[in-house]
Amino acid sequence: MLQVLVNSIVYGSEIAIIAVGIALSYSILRFANFAHIQYAVVGGYATYAGTKLGLPIVAAIAVGAVLVGGLAVLVDALVFSRLRAIAPEGKMIVSWGVALFIRAIIASVFGGSAIIIETSSSTIQVGGAIFTSLDLIVVLATVGFMVLLQLFLYHTRHGSALRALASNYDLAVTRGIPGDRMIRLMWFVTGAYAAIGGSLIALETRLQPNMDLIILLPVFAAVTIGGLSNVFGAVIGAFVLSLAQNVVIAVDFGSLLGGDPWFVPSQFRDYIAVLAMVVVLVLRPASVRPANA
């Protein structure tokens, strides 16, 4: 069972670092950004390109993060900033278009086949649970970047400004907080975090242009479980979801019910993620007052 916990933590870390960006942009702009997950994929490809150009991996990830942060700011300047006033669902549709465009461009440049970033990692065994040095780096990096985000949001002036914008945008702006500039900063941070998350997933597994469609549902499920606009809720959501996915598959329901061993087939992992998302959304406190009360 310890191994199940380890697996959950590793997968949860991969999801969490991407999920926080969606929660951050949602908290300020009420904008569930589908393109955000594509930023993660672009980050992975940027890291790959960096290593091909001879950069060490850490430097490649850093450069990728800055580039994708810039990309997120650019996309905002070209598209999203012109559409601040439209309904949240309209923004979601536009972001889908942006994601589709970026995905197709990535596939045109790098091809549709999967790409591997070669790494060497060693196996570590702790009390019956096995993981790799890379897993450890991924988890530590996630924890590190979460702490960093926490420090940024709660212990810097810019962070406080972002939180003020999140809690009441108009009020914050009238109090003199430069809304537009802070939004650009927010996009840069979310883009960079997405790129780091995407690079870590790429190192752990592989890169393909449609990777965003595969991690879309788990990431959105994590953000939803965490309450959509709560940055650290998204992290908790990622780990809760990951644990649920791993535990449901690992439990012998057959024996529990007194019969032959029976497990939930492992391909139901996605199913669990989507189901969790729907159930949380249906049960969450009402977001509109029923008009026909």
């Binding site: 597994t205 791993n246 598959i249 492992s266 992992r269």
Partner: peptide, 10 residues
């Protein structure tokens, strides 16, 4: 899928 850890764990 990017990761088959859970599948292989089973």
């Amino acid at each position: 899928q990017p990761d088959y850890r859970a599948d292989m764990q089973s």
